[in-house]
C-alpha cells in the first residue's frame, strides 16, 4: 500500500486526479466558513466582535502543530524506509507550516491588543509557538543548505525529529504553566466548552484550513517532482550533446 506511492509517476497521476476536488472543496469550505464567521455567528458577550479573529487563529494554530507532526512522521518514514516521496512531502510541507505559524502569531497579537491590552506576553504558549516558528525556519534553511538535495532532506529530517519535543510543550503549556493564554476549550474529554453557534464556523474554518493544506501540499509536491524531472531531462540532453 505504502510503497505503491513510491513511484513518482503514479503519485503525480493520483495527485492530479485529487487536486481539482480538494481545491473545489477548499473554496466551498472557506466561503461557508467565512460567511458563518463574519455574519452568521454572534459576537461574544465579553470579547465583542474580536472573537471572530478566533475563527482564523485557532484553525491555523491546529494546522501549525499538525503540519509539524506531519513533517515529523514523514521524516521517520524517510529515515527508516528511505521512501523517496516522504522527503519531498516534508520539504513541501515546511513553508506551509511556517506560514500557518506566522498567521497564528499575527492574529493572536491582533486579538491580544484589545483583549489583554498587549501585543505580546512572554508566556509559555506564545513563547513555545515562537520557537516552533524558528524550528520551521531552521528546517527550511537546512533543506536548502547543501549542494546535494538528498543530504539536505535527510539532515532536515533529523532536525524535525529533534524539534518534535516542542509539540507536546505547546499543547500542554497552558496546563503545565499558569499562562495568560486560555486553556483548550474544544479538545477535551467532556463536552466542548463552546456554544454550537460558534462551534459551526470554527469547525468549518478548521476543515477549510486542512483541505487548503492538502491542496497546497499536493501542488508543491507535484511541482517539486516536475522540477526534478526537468533537471534529469536537461542533464541527459546535455550528456547526449557532448557525446555526439
Amino acid at each position: 500500500m505504502f510503497h505503491r506511492f513510491a513511484n513518482p509517476a503514479r503519485f503525480s497521476r493520483i495527485a492530479s486526479a485529487v487536486l481539482p476536488w480538494s481545491a473545489a472543496i477548499t473554496v466551498i469550505l472557506f466561503a461557508a466558513g467565512i460567511w458563518f464567521a463574519l455574519f452568521a455567528s454572534p459576537a461574544d458577550y465579553q470579547q465583542g466582535q474580536t472573537v471572530r479573529i478566533m475563527y482564523v487563529h485557532v484553525p491555523s494554530a491546529w494546522m501549525a502543530m499538525a503540519c509539524y507532526t506531519f513533517i515529523a512522521v514523514m521524516s521517520v518514514i524517510a529515515l527508516v524506509w528511505k521512501h523517496p516521496l516522504a522527503d519531498i512531502a516534508a520539504k513541501a510541507a515546511a513553508p506551509l507550516g511556517a506560514a500557518f505559524t506566522i498567521i497564528v502569531l499575527v492574529t493572536g497579537s491582533l486579538w491580544g491588543k484589545p483583549t489583554w491590552g498587549t501585543w505580546w506576553v512572554w508566556d509559555a504558549r506564545l513563547t513555545s509557538v515562537l520557537v516552533l516558528f524558528f524550528l520551521y525556519l531552521g528546517h527550511i534553511a537546512l533543506t536548502h543548505a547543501f549542494d546535494n538535495p538528498q543530504r539536505g532532506a535527510r539532515a532536515a529530517a533529523v532536525l524535525a525529529l529533534v524539534g518534535f519535543v516542542n509539540i507536546p510543550i505547546i499543547k500542554f503549556s497552558v496546563d503545565w504553566w499558569n499562562t495568560l493564554h486560555q486553556p483548550a476549550s474544544l479538545t477535551r474529554l467532556d463536552t466542548p466548552a463552546i456554544d454550537s453557534s460558534m462551534l459551526t464556523p470554527l469547525l468549518l474554518m478548521a476543515f477549510a484550513f486542512m483541505l487548503y493544506f492538502v491542496t497546497m501540499l499536493l501542488v508543491r509536491m507535484r511541482a517539486d517532482l516536475n522540477a526534478a524531472r526537468t533537471r534529469a531531462l536537461r542533464l541527459s540532453a546535455a550528456e547526449r550533446a557532448t557525446a555526439s
Binding site: 524558528f134 524550528l135 543548505a145 532536525l159 529533534v162
Partner: peptide
C-alpha cells in the same frame, strides 16, 4: 553536537548552526 553534525558540509554552516541550535537552547 546535533547541530554541528547536521550542518556538516553545508554552505554558510556557521549562521545556519545558530539558527538551528539557539531555539533548542531556550
Amino acid at each position: 553536537g546535533i547541530g554541528a553534525a547536521l550542518t556538516l558540509g553545508a554552505r554558510r554552516g556557521g549562521v545556519l548552526l545558530a539558527l538551528l541550535i539557539l531555539p533548542l537552547y531556550i
